[in-house]
Simulated scan of single mutants.
Amino acid sequence: MSTDAADAETDPGSTIEVTPSAAEEAISLMRSEGMDVEEGGLRLFVQQGGCAGLSYGMRFDTEPEDDDLIVERHGLRVFVDPASENYIGGSTLDYESGLQAAGFHVENPNVVSECGCGESFRT
């Protein structure tokens, strides 16, 4: 996996990617909430729930936890806890906007099935 000088990882073995549009939208939302984008970041996690068993969660955090994987892409810091990393390693976070819906989407190569609405998954 290649990174450029503007992108850094705390764990060089990490495989979480972020598209430029996802980073731009998240940074914009963080700034609108008065958050420090240098210290804070977007927490991406997996939780139990949904009709397929697991679902993604996202929230902004002011700082990472001690054991978090920290990935920086396009100026956005992404925090992932070790348990979630097992499910989402290799994933790409994207932001899509369209006429019918807009939002963040996780493209996860580990998923073996998703529910019909696409909100939960199984690995």
Rank of each mutant, 00 (worst) to 15 (best):
M30A: 15
M30I: 11
R31Q: 15
R31L: 14
R31V: 15
R31N: 14
S32Y: 02
E33T: 09
E33C: 07
E33D: 13
G34N: 12
G34C: 11
M35I: 13
M35Y: 07
D36A: 09
D36N: 14
D36P: 06
E38G: 14
E38M: 12
E38K: 14
E38W: 03
E38H: 12
E39G: 08
G40I: 06
G40Y: 05
G40W: 03
G40A: 10
G40D: 11
G41R: 01
G41E: 09
G41K: 04
L42I: 10
L42G: 08
L42F: 11
R43I: 02
L44W: 00
F45N: 08
Q47L: 09
Q47N: 12
G49V: 06
G49N: 06
G49L: 09
G49H: 04
G50E: 10
G50D: 12
G50C: 07
A52E: 03
A52M: 10
G53D: 10
L54S: 13
S55L: 11
Y56Q: 06
Y56L: 08
G57P: 09
M58Q: 13
M58G: 14
M58F: 07
R59P: 00
R59C: 13
F60D: 13
F60C: 11
D61L: 14
D61Q: 13
D61M: 10
D61R: 12
E63N: 13
P64F: 03
P64K: 11
E65Q: 14
E65S: 15
E65A: 15
D67Y: 04
D67K: 03
D67V: 05
D67N: 15
D67C: 03
D68T: 11
D68Q: 03
L69V: 10
I70F: 05
I70Q: 11
V71K: 04
V71Y: 00
V71H: 06
V71M: 11
V71R: 03
V71Q: 12
V71F: 01
E72L: 03
E72P: 00
R73H: 10
R73L: 05
R73S: 09
R73V: 09
H74N: 15
H74W: 13
G75M: 08
G75K: 07
G75H: 05
L76A: 11
R77L: 10
V78D: 03
V78K: 01
F79V: 04
F79H: 08
F79I: 07
F79A: 06
V80T: 09
V80H: 04
V80E: 07
V80Y: 02
D81F: 00
D81W: 00
D81K: 00
P82S: 02
A83S: 04
A83V: 02
A83G: 02
S84E: 01
S84N: 02
S84G: 11
S84P: 01
E85L: 14
E85W: 01
E85D: 12
E85R: 02
E85T: 00
Y87M: 02
Y87Q: 02
Y87W: 14
Y87I: 01
I88M: 10
I88C: 04
I88R: 00
G89E: 14
G89V: 12
G90Y: 02
G90N: 08
G90K: 03
G90C: 08
S91G: 09
S91H: 04
S91K: 03
S91V: 09
T92A: 07
T92H: 01
L93Q: 05
L93F: 07
L93N: 05
D94R: 05
Y95I: 07
Y95S: 04
Y95C: 05
E96T: 10
E96K: 12
